[in-house]
């Protein structure tokens, strides 16, 4: 299918690169030593995706999300998920109101009505409450009391979860995990980074971040991402990667119970487009797909129990997929080998 939208021009790409560089530079002042995490978060937001950050407490996940909201000048809300949290606590409730015109139920919007919803420790809420987010994440609207309410644009869910607490947690179901564009594992900091944190921060003091992008500029960037050209060879590569994750299709998918969904293929294309804009290119490339594949596919591949017992991980499967499936599908003859230097 031909792409009807014109690809970004050089002028647009230059302006976008400058804006994004400002955004990333500001976020680096919020979160030290997590350049890759910041890049992934910016890429995910540009792709209009919901992000799931997994990491130990105190690594700056919440600060990063708050900083992102501050940089973009967007409205953000934070919900601390707990086991007794009810769906209405997130989506909002109809409230009985008595006015001069009479008695009626008035919908009181919940915290989900924001541009950025920070769902802190999402795996502490019950499955019923978690599923209340499904419609909001996918349809970007909320239905309560028989009425459907559209969420503000743009709308992102940035959720965090703690991987070490098992007591009182409810692992996210696969259907909900699939709705997150990225699952990003937040790693620990090095000693140098910790030193910078100690020197520049004070316990309890929240860093103040000034907006670096207006809402209009940010919406313009989102529109620009959609115009990134997707070459057919890259689309073919995405399709072969996702298809290769299905059980029995490739050697890398040994031990896989359920492979990535078609939504994963769309997510790869969207995230790749965002990365292309971040790198000032009007087209998607193999390298873009490979850069985001770990974060896009990792949480969408479900392993067999036996494979997990053998030490296999979804991340390992993705690594094997990237190594096994070449960018050029036609194999080289036996008399030649690739000289590609990793």
């Amino acid at each position: 299918m031909s792409d009807p939208k014109p690809p970004p021009t050089d002028t647009e790409l230059t302006a976008a690169s400058a804006s994004l560089e400002r955004l990333v530079a500001t976020l680096r002042t919020v979160l030290f030593g997590q350049e890759e995490l910041i890049e992934l978060v910016v890429t995910g937001v540009l792709a209009r995706g919901h992000l799931l950050l997994e990491g130990l407490p105190g690594l700056g996940k919440t600060e990063l999300v708050k900083g992102l909201a501050g940089c973009l000048g967007l409205q953000s809300r934070r919900v601390q998920f707990t086991p007794d949290l009810l769906p209405g606590d997130i989506t909002g409730n109809p409230v009985f109101e008595e006015t001069a015109a009479g008695r009626r139920f008035v919908f009181q919007p919940g915290p989900v009505f924001a541009n950025i919803l920070l769902a802190d420790e999402i795996n502490r809420a019950s499955p019923k409450t978690q599923s209340a987010l499904l419609e909001a994440m996918q349809e970007r609207r909320v239905t309560a009391g028989g009425e459907t309410h559209t969420l503000p644009e743009p709308f992102f869910v940035l959720a965090t979860q703690n991987p070490i607490d098992l007591e009182g947690t409810y692992p996210l179901p696969e259907a909900q995990l699939d709705r997150f564009l990225f699952k990003i594992v937040v790693g620990s900091n090095s000693a140098d980074v910790l030193k910078r944190i100690v020197l520049n921060r004070e316990l309890g003091a929240v860093p103040v971040v000034a907006p670096v992008l207006s809402r209009e500029e940010f919406n313009g960037l989102l529109a620009l991402v959609r115009r990134v050209h997707l070459p057919e060879v890259v689309a073919d590569y995405i399709a072969r990667l996702v298809h290769g994750s299905q059980p029995g299709v490739s050697a890398a998918s040994a031990g896989v119970r359920f492979g990535a969904s078609p939504r994963a293929a769309l997510a790869l294309a969207a995230a790749g487009r965002a990365r292309a804009i971040r790198h000032g290119r009007p087209h998607l490339s193999f390298e873009d797909v490979q850069a985001v594949a770990r974060s896009v596919l990792g949480h969408r591949i479900i392993l067999e129990h036996t494979a997990r017992l053998d030490g296999s991980t979804p991340q390992g499967v993705v690594e094997k997929l990237l190594a096994e499936i070449p960018a050029q599908p036609k194999p080289l003859p036996g008399t030649l080998r690739s000289a590609k230097i990793a």
Binding site: H229, P231, V234, H279, P282, S285, F286, E287, A327
Partner: peptide, 19 residues
């Protein structure tokens, strides 16, 4: 194969397509 081997970010394909 050339652009993948030389890490050219598919610039050759994009240039061929006029992008």
């Amino acid at each position: 194969l050339l652009e993948a081997g030389l890490y050219l970010d598919n610039r050759l394909t994009a240039a061929t397509e006029g992008v």
